[in-house]
Design a protein around this nucleic acid. Structure first.
Lengths: 237, 237
DNA sequence: ATTATTTGTCATCAAAATGTAACATTGCAT
DNA sequence: ATGCAATGTTACATTTTGATGACAAATAAT
């Protein structure tokens, strides 16, 4: 992901959105906002925020519904949610726990507390899945240290190439169209020239080729499938 | 699995239906329209569109109701829905997030955005149903990796030969006329010289022959049926 | 501010795929 | 066997598709 986590603030009161926005900014997060559940959902589909701050009391009572929906959908289930709630009453919390929300902050809260909780939740959630290194022959990707190694030497590449390689290594032995790759690596609903994918594939290949001293060409793992897209595969073309 | 996805536009305003229709047309989609939820429902059962663009604010029954019904019915639940919503104050009626809609587009929208979202949603929904590999003796076709293997070695062939083989392997033991093969492999409404099929059959056979090291000739699976066409069969000619 | 890095797009070149026609071969009816 | 229609094969011009270097805008680093 990006260096600074991207946080979505969902609240119908502009004042609260602004307040939180500033607090997050100061703490080094990026943030976007939405005032309705609908806006929020669109934003989530498009941007895949790293965390969602969700007001419990959205008009129509839709905050909790949104949370439930997000947790049920496979694509969004892993995005942590912190509920903002005015009430301290227990039944709310019980309901929310049901849904699978990650934490609560009760209004009024201090920015300091909010940030602390955000960090805690992020730490928990990012520590989970990402951390296992993937290795193919002597090509190793370690998400924890955000590093790619060939024959135990670091490989230099840009962030986009890193994400690209990461996508491929986590989805081996399958073709992906350029469109698909754009979705996965750049995000859905980002429009780029189709050939842009080619260029980045090229850069990734170059980086991998340059890295090997043993003559094994790791760029061969990234195979062109004419008329279909690209494939990461250990088997021969 | 038609070449162009068929999209149903449901909106009560004719102007909007037309506008969207044109946009989709330009983008290479086919589209049909409905102005009421009832019309839409009939159309959906009839035509099985690949995706539904559904106006949130349909007169009377409202689009949300329809969406909910479709998502509850097992037969239609898998058809992706994109909701068209007015920008403003639908806040109170937002009860329907739960419904399971796949994306939203807020009016007014650009055709470009609409098309981008449609493509993204289609990609997501069709990508899920992974086809299973088909195997005949030591000839294996794996649609996921877009690969043909003979005795565990990759077979090289052009995209057209791949589609051709795919068609045969999914429709074995039946004769198909050259016309029929053209329809299936090149798509309807493409006119080619009839002999073109022969040439590609030839290329496919050559690719299969060249692939085997054990002397088994897999090109024999593609049998000529004089006066009728071709057949893919494991039984002898 | 200046410099370096990264990014997306474009133009260009090279390679692969495609459709067609011409020619060769096969198999069947007589 | 003979002739003919159907099919196989080959060569080739054209079209598609992918790779790559160059460049300018955007972004991050100093």
């Amino acid at each position: 992901m990006t260096p600074e986590p991207n946080i979505l603030i969902v609240d119908d009161e502009a004042a609260i959105r602004d307040m939180i926005g500033i607090a997050l900014d100061t703490a080094g997060f990026r943030s976007t906002t939405a005032s309705t559940a609908l806006d929020a959902h669109v934003n989530i589909i498009d941007q895949r925020p790293d965390l969602i701050l969700l007001d419990w009391m959205l008009p129509g009572g839709s905050g909790i519904e949104l949370a439930r929906r997000l947790k049920r959908d496979e694509l969004t289930a892993s995005i942590p949610i912190i509920m903002l709630t005015a009430k301290t009453s227990e039944d709310n919390k019980v309901q929310g726990l049901d849904v699978g929300v990650d934490d609560y902050v009760t209004k009024p809260f201090s920015p300091r507390e909010l940030v602390a909780r955000i960090k805690a939740v992020l730490r928990r959630s990012t520590g989970n899945l990402k951390d296992k290194p993937i290795r193919v022959f002597d090509l190793e990707m370690d998400p924890a240290s955000h590093r790619v190694m060939v024959e135990d030497r670091a490989v230099e590449m840009g962030p986009t190439e890193y994400r690209l390689l990461n996508f491929f290594m986590t989805h081996p032995e399958k073709v992906y169209s350029r469109d698909h790759i754009q979705d996965q690596v750049w995000g859905a609903n980002v429009y780029l020239e189709e050939r842009t994918v080619d260029v980045h594939i090229g850069r990734l290949r170059k980086a991998l080729s340059a890295a090997s001293k043993t003559g094994i060409n790791y760029s061969a793992l990234i195979q062109t499938v004419r008329g279909a897209g690209y494939r990461f595969s250990t088997r021969h073309n």
